[in-house]
């Protein structure tokens, strides 16, 4: 498949939203992730809402500007084993139903405060219980990859905590001021 038709398919899958491709991962990988994990447009939207709740952009840039939803999907597709992938996908599928059952409202219908409370509680839940396994696995995996993507984004590593490619120095005993 060439790039153009790949992008077209991706546009269909993501409900018409085509992101400007960044140099850090290819649109082919994003497309493959959507296809292999069978992510629908509404699921992608829900995932985006979860990630936006983790990084709402109140202090830093919002997650969507860093393409975190696509990053999370690419990592799930490429770097999880089959079983972990299944947990992630079924957790995403169940997420609205799960949040309704546990918190009395579908996650997709929550306002940002409710969404934050819901997610904060879900992240502390024990995922060993069978009926919670997928949903809790899903939110934990999403947070893990979203955090990884954020901390390793160009934005974060240039503007917030600049990464030095060429430090050209090492000091073994540097005095800390005001220690």
């Amino acid at each position: 498949m060439d790039r153009r038709s790949a992008m077209k398919q991706l546009a269909l899958l993501t409900g018409g939203v085509v992101l400007i491709p960044a140099c850090d991962f290819s649109e082919e990988s994003i497309l493959q992730a959507h296809q292999n994990l069978k992510i629908t447009a509404s699921q992608k939207e829900l995932l985006t809402q979860v990630i936006n709740t983790i990084f709402p952009g109140k202090v830093l840039k919002p997650s969507e500007e860093l393409q975190l939803p696509d990053f999370v999907l690419v990592m799930c597709n490429d770097c999880l084993d089959k079983e972990q992938q299944e947990t992630f996908v079924s957790g995403l599928q169940q997420w609205d139903a799960f949040s309704k059952e546990q918190f009395g409202k579908k996650f997709s219908q929550m306002n940002s405060t409710e969404a934050e409370d819901c997610l904060r509680t879900a992240l502390t839940m024990d995922g060993k219980e069978e009926e919670k396994k997928s949903a809790i696995g899903f939110v934990n995996t999403t947070k893990r990859f979203a955090l990884q993507g954020y901390l390793n984004s160009e934005y974060f590593m240039t503007e917030i905590k600049p990464y030095e490619l060429v430090p050209a120095r090492f000091y073994g005993s540097k005095k800390i001021e005001n220690a």
Partner: peptide, 17 residues
């Protein structure tokens, strides 16, 4: 050799496959 961390598709990790 001159890539920045964010330029690696999987941020350094080796894909499962």
């Amino acid at each position: 050799t001159n890539k920045m961390p964010w330029e690696f598709e999987h941020r350094g990790a080796i894909p499962e496959e």
